[in-house]
C-alpha cells in the first residue's frame, strides 16, 4: 500500500478516535487520538521525503505535491495547537479536512516532471512553506468557526468561560480560538506573500504585476486583514458581542473559501490564460 493510502486511513482512524474521545473522556483516549494524528502526520511527511528523493527536487513543484504538503501542514498546525489547548472535537474535523485535501490530491496528475527553471529558487521554498502553514491554520480556524456557528443557537443561556478547566476551551468560546488560529496563521500568510514577491522579482523581474494569482493572494490577505480589524469597529456600531462573534465566524468561513479558490480555483477565471503562476496552465 502506498504511503498516501496509509496516511488517508490513519486520518480516518484519527477522526473516529476523536469522536470516541468525546464519549469516553480519559487521558488514554486523548493520547490514542492524538497519537494516531501524529502517526498520520509522520506518514504524510515520509511521503514528502520519499517523493523529494525520487523527484530530485522539493515536493512542491506541481499541484499534486503541493496539495499533499497542504494536508501535512493542516495536520501539523492542529497538532501544535492541541499541545497548547485542549481541543476535543476539533481534531475529528481537522483530520477529516486533512483527509479531504489528500483525497483531492490523489485526483491530480502524479507524474514527476522536471521542474521549470523559475521554480529553482530558495525564495520559492520559503514562499511555499510559509504559505502552507498559514493555509493550515486557516483550515483549522474554518473548522472552529464552523463548530462555533453550529453550537451557538443551543448555548444561548450558557455563560461564557463556564466550565473551563486549565487550558480547556469550552465550545462556546471557539470564536476566541478561531482568532488565535488566525493570529497564528496571518504572519505566515504575510511572510509567504512577501517571499513570493521577492521570488517573482528575481525570476520574472517584477515583485508585483497584478497577475491573477498575485491579485487573489492579495484578496486572501485583505480578507484576513479585515477579520483582524473588524472587532475594533463592530462594538462601536452598536452591534452586540454575540452578533459580532457570529459575523466574524461567517467571515472566516468565507475567507477559507477564498484561500482555496486562490490555491486551486483560478483556472476557472477568464484571466487565467494570461497568468504565469497558475498551476497547470503551463
Amino acid at each position: 500500500m502506498s504511503l498516501i493510502n496509509i496516511t488517508l486511513i490513519l486520518y480516518i482512524m484519527t477522526s473516529v478516535a476523536y469522536i470516541a474521545r468525546e464519549v469516553w473522556r480519559s487521558s488514554v483516549a486523548k493520547w490514542i487520538s492524538l497519537g494516531l494524528f501524529i502517526l498520520g502526520f509522520c506518514f504524510n511527511v515520509s511521503w514528502l521525503v520519499t517523493r523529494s528523493i525520487e523527484a530530485g527536487h522539493p515536493p512542491f513543484s506541481n499541484l499534486y505535491e503541493s496539495l499533499v504538503f497542504y494536508a501535512c501542514c493542516t495536520a501539523l498546525v492542529y497538532i501544535i495547537f492541541e499541545f497548547i489547548y485542549n481541543f476535543r472535537i476539533v481534531g475529528a474535523l481537522a483530520s477529516v479536512l486533512a483527509m479531504l485535501i489528500l483525497l483531492y490530491a490523489t485526483l491530480q496528475d502524479p507524474t514527476i516532471r522536471p521542474i521549470m527553471p523559475a521554480l529553482k529558487s530558495n525564495w520559492m521554498l520559503a514562499h511555499v512553506i510559509t504559505y502552507m502553514l498559514g493555509y493550515g491554520a486557516f483550515g483549522i480556524s474554518f473548522v472552529t468557526s464552523g463548530i462555533f456557528l453550529a453550537i451557538k443557537p443551543f448555548a444561548k443561556n450558557k455563560k461564557r468561560n463556564e466550565g473551563e478547566k486549565g487550558n480547556e476551551i469550552s465550545l462556546i468560546n471557539f470564536d476566541k480560538l478561531s482568532y488565535k488560529l488566525v493570529a497564528f496563521g496571518f504572519p505566515f500568510l504575510t511572510l509567504g506573500m512577501v517571499t513570493g514577491a521577492v521570488w517573482a522579482k528575481k525570476a520574472w523581474g517584477d515583485y508585483w504585476s497584478w497577475d491573477p494569482k498575485e491579485t487573489w493572494s492579495l484578496i486572501t490577505w485583505l480578507a484576513y486583514l479585515a477579520y483582524l480589524h473588524t472587532p475594533l469597529i463592530l462594538p462601536k456600531m452598536n452591534i452586540s458581542k454575540s452578533k459580532t462573534s457570529v459575523i466574524l465566524a461567517f467571515w472566516l468561513l468565507i475567507s477559507f473559501g477564498i484561500v482555496n479558490f486562490t490555491f486551486v480555483g483560478l483556472n476557472y477565471l477568464p484571466s487565467a490564460a494570461d497568468s504565469e503562476h497558475i498551476y497547470g496552465s503551463k
Binding site: W210, P212, T215, W216, L218, I219, L222, A223, L225, A226, H229, T230, I233, L266, L269, P270, S271, D274
Partner: peptide
C-alpha cells in the same frame, strides 16, 4: 480602513474577472 479593504477586495475580484 475596513471599508477601503472591502472596496479593494471587490476591485481585485473585478480585476481578475474582467480581462485587463
Amino acid at each position: 480602513a475596513v471599508v477601503i479593504i472591502l472596496i479593494m477586495v471587490v476591485a481585485c475580484i473585478l480585476g481578475t474577472v474582467i480581462l485587463q
